[in-house]
Design a protein around this nucleic acid. Structure first.
Lengths: 361, 361
DNA sequence: AGTGATACTGTGTGCGCACACGCAAAAATA
DNA sequence: TATTTTTGCGTGTGCGCACACAGTATCACT
């Protein structure tokens, strides 16, 4: 039984040195002769030493400043969720000396993003957590972080080849594949599936492209079946009249349109504009458990929602930085969260879980 | 900004008493005059004091013994998973003084269960975590725990009205409803759905009954459709010949049998016995991400697996006891885990997540 | 007034660790 | 050889808290 907890003191005793020396070896502070160092390392290994973070944090008596750069969430309910996860993690980590410095930018406003990024860089924190929704501006932030040696984590949206500690979010390509599979349940040979991006051009659109590719690749597995895939982008999604007109036009042009895949959390915006008769008939797959989507899910207007665990994203983002800074652990560069398939019958459990994130360092 | 951390010392100063008195109030140790107590409480409230568990654990300098009573997992791969979750939680909590005392019983052997329960009670731990797979024997254990005042948590299987701290697992009824929904995708009017319990009689069967009820209730929502539901129990599932004969007989008796709902993790045992031609045609819904099921899922022999998060069950079980013992938190008596819908396209993320349980106290 | 019991409150120590400080020996330099 | 510099190592303190212990105040009863 190795239940006995090994302390620095135990190692020091066994190695015949002082705890100070063990500490120097432990933190690689130098000023230890090579042979003594090796001796201490051997004893540590032999006794199976594990650093006691409890006592360690207490003695460190320092704070770790984590700056976050996230979208304002009154414009888009989706962003409440990562923010909630961040909050929760921060509360759990307060006693470990982690201090949050939140920055909120406007969702469709690059300038706001840049300005807050500058504020962060002016008073460099120990780490940065952000959602790189603007490609160009985020790349600049990443570069600045690299120069100043500030570790950072991206959530929700990925920038490939970025020198970031980690990306935490979904696998966009695979979510497209999954959407294909789910829509396929309700589609027959010869029918049409619509892929609809309700998004604004300035957005970092790589993940939409990936989703589309995944979606198409799924249907390509069935060369015998002829399901037509139509893809559209639409920017003016907050204008009900225009959106309705756009959709009417689409249905007119594609009489056998029988399924829609919405590539982000805005499915409800279009469903709001469709006549009941059509909504009930066609199959709809969307993303994210935001309230307006849930209403439609419960009414069977939306058939499936793919949950990308936005709360967990924020939560894991903070935890990952903590693990890097404080626990000095290696962080996985890609942390893909599960693609949860949500229907009316299992919805409640996912909603509840968001309020119950369990946490232990 | 309430970033300033409040210490006992701060409260003592502001209230004009010593830290000792604050400590007495904090732990309700008595020996404090009512007015001083009230004063200290007011100051604590005003300053927003939160106990620093870091320093607290260090000072307590005690251990918490948690005994677990779980099935042996070579007989049934399912049980590897809760055990893995327990392990992971224990590792994270070691520095908080939590010590695990594991007991393993034989899956189909009540005597083995009773014997280990006795061992636990002979040297009472601070808390017990167990899987009440045998109804009668578990009830006895629960009663003994109550008498001795040992807090306990049940995972995986529920005993209703038990005086347990918490049940952690799935909502059986709702999982039956969900299975109905999933099978429904592939069933047409006039066809037959089979509900098959591959289970042994001694087992605590309440949850199988609940699943059946949920399944039936789902189809009852569609009185217009006539889908026949056939229910069978089969105990001798490890005898391939008998199982094959049993299934053949069933298909002969029900020519329009086009979907099977397996109520536990043993779907693979039956699928192994069915001819390829039939398997590919009929829809199958089962439970749990055990390896033999995964093979069939990847081959599209099984259409859906409902994941009941067994790893998380074990993990949460330990965490809940920790929260109760050490953090003195209130524990929810029912902790339902999500009913994950797993298909080939989202399987990998669930498998990966099991290895990455994140933890912070 | 003296004694003892009881009610209440303050002090001191140590949990395991990080780090500043100080000292001695060894090495480099004059 | 004397002096300075560098290297190697031990000691001591404090992080916030729990708890044992010591101490003072109050009161009842001689």
């Amino acid at each position: 039984m190795t239940n006995k907890r090994i302390r620095i003191k135990d190692i020091a005793e066994k190695a015949g040195v002082s705890t100070g020396t063990v500490d120097r070896v432990l933190h690689d502070r130098g000023n230890v002769s090579p042979d003594v160092k090796q001796l201490v390392l051997n004893v540590m290994d032999e006794l199976g030493y594990e650093r006691n973070i409890i006592a360690s944090t207490l003695a460190y008596n320092r704070t770790w400043r984590i700056a976050t750069l996230m979208p304002e969430f009154h414009t888009d309910p989706y962003w409440e969720q990562p923010n909630a996860g961040i909050d929760r993690a921060m509360k759990a980590l307060r006693h470990y000396g982690v201090v949050l410095e939140p920055h909120i930018f406007m969702l469709f406003d690059q300038n706001s993003f840049v300005q807050h990024a500058r504020e962060i860089l002016d008073n460099p924190p120990d780490a940065v957590l952000f959602a790189p929704v603007f490609l160009k501006e985020s790349t600049l932030l990443l570069k600045a972080c690299e120069e100043k040696g500030i570790p950072n984590v991206m959530i929700n949206t990925n920038i490939e080849n970025a020198k970031s500690l980690s990306y935490i979010g979904q696998d966009s390509y695979q979510s497209g594949v999954l959407a294909g599979r789910l829509l396929h349940f309700g589609l027959n040979d010869g029918e049409t599936a619509l892929l609809l991006n309700l998004e604004i051009g300035s957005y970092n659109a790589k993940h939409l492209i990936d989703k589309e590719q995944g979606f198409r690749d799924y249907f390509a597995r069935f060369p015998g079946q002829r399901i037509e895939i139509v893809k559209r982008d639409f920017e003016d999604f907050d204008n009900k009249n225009k959106l309705t007109a756009f959709l009417n036009e689409l249905f007119k042009g594609h009489p056998r349109l029988n399924g829609i895949f919405f590539t982000n959390s805005r499915a409800y915006k279009a469903v709001d504009c469709l006549p009941e008769k059509i909504v009930q008939k066609i199959k709809i797959v969307g993303f994210d458990l935001v309230e307006p989507n849930l209403v439609h899910l419960r009414n069977n207007n939306i058939d499936f929602l793919i949950n990308q665990n936005p709360v967990q994203q924020g939560f894991l983002g903070v935890i990952s930085l903590f693990n890097h800074l404080v626990k000095k652990q290696k962080i996985e560069p890609q942390q893909y969260l599960p693609l949860d398939i949500v229907v009316t019958e299992n919805l409640d459990y996912y909603l509840r879980r968001q309020d119950e994130l369990q946490l232990v360092v």
